[in-house]
Design a protein around this nucleic acid. Structure first.
Lengths: 138, 138
DNA sequence: AGTAATGTGCAACAAAGTTGCAAATTATTT
DNA sequence: AAATAATTTGCAACTTTGTTGCACATTACT
């Protein structure tokens, strides 16, 4: 069965509202990650800036989307895979940012390599951000 | 010979000014990385906000410091190692952010693991940010 | 010491993000 | 299905963060 955006909201105990449905739909349609600014542009006519902020924050809290660290200080958001939204949240996958077209990809099938930390350091989460040229731009 | 901050500035064809010396000194004294806000707090009485922005930008351009991507959308700056400032800039090392004390470490001796990208993707730079508990906080 | 080049501070602005509160929408109860 | 309770939204006002132009000051050069 194809999970609709409404299903996802329901599964996370969230009220089903227009803004949440639209913004979630945006993520489903987008291949890569979205910046807050992207979302604002694509729906600012419809929704208030503040609503978008709060919606994104809610989605992050519920584990529906996750943030991606970038070198240029912009926050990116991307949809978590199905097994995330089901409960055990894990966004330990590699992100790829194309220098040419600026698209951010979640490379879900690339496993995070293990990192050998010095004595006394405990690892909880690892973010790997690779930049370069994507398959569409080379 | 111990390289002074003035030496570093000279080596990069930068005028030696009070603000640059002080800010560079801050980095030398700090073990971890610094956020812009940190620098502003520790020297805002002395220097204008704008000067700090411009100084940091200059240092990044010259390869004296580098930026670190973080998940919470704050930019961190850290001193590059000596061989960076000598010319061939490389900040491909692992960064560690302590969840407890919020200090960011540059783990220069931990090598970046190689990542197997899908067909058609070309890798240029890799940033690895690990979060967890550092050796002072456990 | 004097001139050219560079850097700094101020002001004004733009962008990004936050908070409180009343109105509107969604969910729940009867 | 209507009424109430619980959420959510939009507005306004504000804070923080970052940028730009320009006059003045400082540093470097001869």
């Amino acid at each position: 069965m194809a999970t609709t955006v409404a299903d996802i909201l329901k599964a996370n105990n969230l009220s089903i509202t227009d803004s949440r449905k639209s913004i979630l739909e945006l993520f489903k349609l987008s291949k890569g990650a979205l910046a807050h600014a992207d979302i604002e542009k694509k729906s600012s006519a419809q929704f208030d800036r503040v609503t978008i902020y709060r919606t994104l924050q809610t989605f992050v809290d519920k584990g529906i989307i996750h943030t991606i660290p970038t070198a240029d200080n912009s926050v990116l958001y991307a949809l978590c895979k199905d097994d995330c939204s089901a409960g055990h949240h894990h966004d330990n996958h590699v992100h790829f940012i194309c220098d040419s077209c600026d698209t951010t990809y979640c490379l879900d099938h690339v496993t995070i390599p293990s990192v050998n930390l010095p004595e006394g350091f405990t690892q909880k989460q690892t973010d790997v951000v690779v930049s370069g040229v994507c398959k569409n731009c080379e």
